[in-house]
Amino acid sequence: MTVHKTPTDVWLPIPADEIDGLPEPGASGLNYLFWDGGPDFPGDPASCVFYVVPYMKGEQIAVRPLSGMSRVRVVQTLSAGIDHVTPGIGALPSGVRLCNAKGVHEASTAELTLTLILASLRGIPGFVRGQDAEEWRSGFYPALADKTVLIVGYGSIGAAIEDRLTPFECARVVRVARSARRGEHGPVHAMADLPELLPDADVVVLSTPLTPETRHLADADFLGRMKDGALLVNVARGPVVETAALLKETETGRIRAALDVTDPEPLPAGHPLWHAPGVLVTPHVGGSTSAFMPRAKRLLAAQLTRFAAGEDPSNIVLTT
Rank of each mutant, 00 (worst) to 15 (best):
D263V: 02
P54E: 11
M293R: 15
V240H: 02
V241L: 07
W136T: 00
P209F: 04
D44R: 12
P294W: 03
E162D: 08
R178D: 10
A244V: 11
L112R: 01
R295H: 12
A269Q: 13
G155V: 05
H84P: 06
P42I: 10
N234W: 09
S156M: 10
A245T: 10
A309I: 04
Q60V: 14
T289A: 06
E24S: 14
L92P: 02
I89N: 04
E111S: 05
C48V: 10
A16D: 00
A91D: 12
L33C: 14
E106A: 03
V85G: 00
N100Q: 09
L267R: 06
A80G: 13
S28E: 04
T77F: 03
S207V: 12
Y141H: 13
H4G: 00
T113H: 09
P167Q: 12
G224M: 14
A302F: 03
G310C: 02
V240Q: 05
S290I: 14
R254D: 05
R306L: 13
C99E: 06
S179K: 15
A302V: 07
A159P: 00
T8K: 07
Y32F: 08
F41N: 04
P209W: 05
V233Q: 01
I124V: 15
S79R: 10
P65A: 10
G286T: 03
S28Y: 06
I19A: 01
I117H: 00
K248M: 12
L232Y: 02
Y55Q: 11
T243N: 05
L30E: 01
G155C: 05
P187N: 14
L144Y: 07
I19M: 01
T8Q: 11
S288T: 15
V281N: 04
Q303I: 05
Q60C: 10
R295N: 12
K102N: 13
T113K: 03
V75W: 01
G287M: 06
A62V: 08
R97E: 14
V3E: 08
I117N: 02
L121W: 03
S28V: 03
H4L: 11
T214Q: 07
L223Y: 04
S290Q: 14
A236M: 05
V317W: 00
L280R: 09
P45M: 11
Q76K: 03
T243D: 05
R306I: 06
R164A: 04
L78E: 01
G186T: 13
S179N: 14
A159K: 13
H275K: 15
A145V: 09
A143H: 14
L92V: 13
Y154H: 10
V152R: 03
N100H: 08
A91M: 09
T6Y: 01
D263I: 00
A46S: 15
G43K: 10
P313V: 13
G153Y: 08
G90Q: 10
K248D: 14
T148E: 15
G21S: 11
L210D: 03
H284G: 06
Q131I: 11
M1N: 00
R64A: 15
F168Q: 00
T115A: 13
P167S: 09
L223T: 06
